[in-house]
Amino acid sequence: MTGQHHLRGVLLASLACMMWGISGVVASSLFTLNTHVTALWLSEVRMTTAGIVLLIIAQLIGAKPMRLWQHKNTAGRIVSYGLLGMVPVQLCYFEAVKFGNAPIATIIQFLGPFIISIYYFLFKHTKPTRPESVGMVIAFVGTFLIVTHGHVNALAISPVVLFWGFLSAIGVATNTLLPRPLFSTYGSLSVTGWGLLIAGLSLNFVKPVWQFHTTVTATEWTLVAIIIVFGTVIPFQMFAHSLAYILPTTATLLDAFEPLAATVFSVIFLSVQLTGFDLVGGTLIILAVMILSMNSRKLVNFFHRRRSTT
């Protein structure tokens, strides 16, 4: 693995996170246009549809997605991935967006990299590298400036938003860690497809999608389609591929691009005015990515050492 491969992983993860940021803006617009659309309904439709699409593609290209169910341990991990990874990172995030707003939900979800670092420290006895630590601090400060404009008191977070947001942050960690051992053997299409499908189908036990009596217009269905294709199918594959080149902590750190993308698209499509805090915050996020890229060789060697011990 070379520095060029590391850069490829950084770019893939960054673009994926930007697409997720855009899908958050689209979802927020959908909730505004139709107040009867719930986060549960949107998550069911999004994950079930995207999962089926990915599995069909996997079958067509010869990835044999049914192989995942031939071994008990693999089957258990993919079910855990769907229930403990996909559900919180999708449903809980949309709940936080609906009860609060996209920026608040995003900054809470950004705690995911810290949860991963805590996991590695407690269970793998591995401390974060210096670039990761510095990058986390800089990127978090940049994200904080974008979503708060420097005013701490402006973060009027209700308990329900904090609850859903924290669950989505845990989802970021589990969504990154749980499926990773499966990618090299079964491919990202099959793994992600089954994870999405399991998550989408499981939510129907809470309330089946056909029991939602909601009238959705053509415009609203277009927004749903954008969320499925550009906010789910494509970015999940890009993010999954990035994990072949970079560490989980590095990949999830790049989630800082999500609020940055959300801010830019809010300016373009919702006429939101950028302030000095937005510009400073965006600069800090880019700086964090540069720090990671400049230390690619050290991160790659660290990845090889960790892989050989696990």
Rank of each mutant, 00 (worst) to 15 (best):
I198Y: 01
I198N: 04
L201C: 01
S202M: 03
L203Y: 09
N204W: 02
N204C: 02
F205C: 04
V206S: 08
K207V: 08
K207E: 09
K207T: 11
K207L: 12
P208T: 01
P208H: 03
V209T: 01
W210H: 06
Q211H: 15
Q211L: 07
H213M: 11
T214I: 15
T215D: 15
T215C: 12
V216P: 00
A218Q: 10
A218H: 07
A218C: 06
E220T: 03
E220S: 00
W221R: 03
W221E: 02
L223S: 06
L223I: 09
A225S: 13
A225M: 12
I227Q: 06
I228G: 07
I228W: 02
I228Y: 03
F230D: 11
F230M: 14
G231R: 08
T232V: 11
T232G: 03
T232C: 05
V233S: 06
I234L: 14
F236N: 15
Q237T: 06
Q237V: 08
Q237A: 09
M238R: 12
M238C: 14
S242M: 09
S242P: 13
L243I: 12
Y245A: 12
I246G: 13
T250I: 14
A251E: 09
T252H: 07
L253P: 03
L254M: 13
A256T: 13
A256W: 07
E258L: 08
P259Y: 11
P259G: 08
L260P: 02
L260I: 11
A262C: 01
T263Y: 05
T263V: 06
T263A: 14
T263H: 04
V264A: 12
V264C: 08
F265C: 12
F265H: 05
F265N: 02
V267G: 15
F269A: 10
F269Q: 01
F269G: 09
F269P: 01
L270V: 14
L270H: 15
L270S: 13
S271E: 15
S271Y: 09
V272P: 01
Q273H: 15
L274H: 06
T275A: 10
T275C: 08
T275G: 15
F277E: 09
V280E: 04
V280H: 07
G282Q: 07
G282K: 01
L284N: 04
L284V: 12
L284M: 12
I285D: 07
L287E: 01
A288T: 07
V289Y: 02
M290G: 05
M290H: 03
M290N: 06
L292I: 15
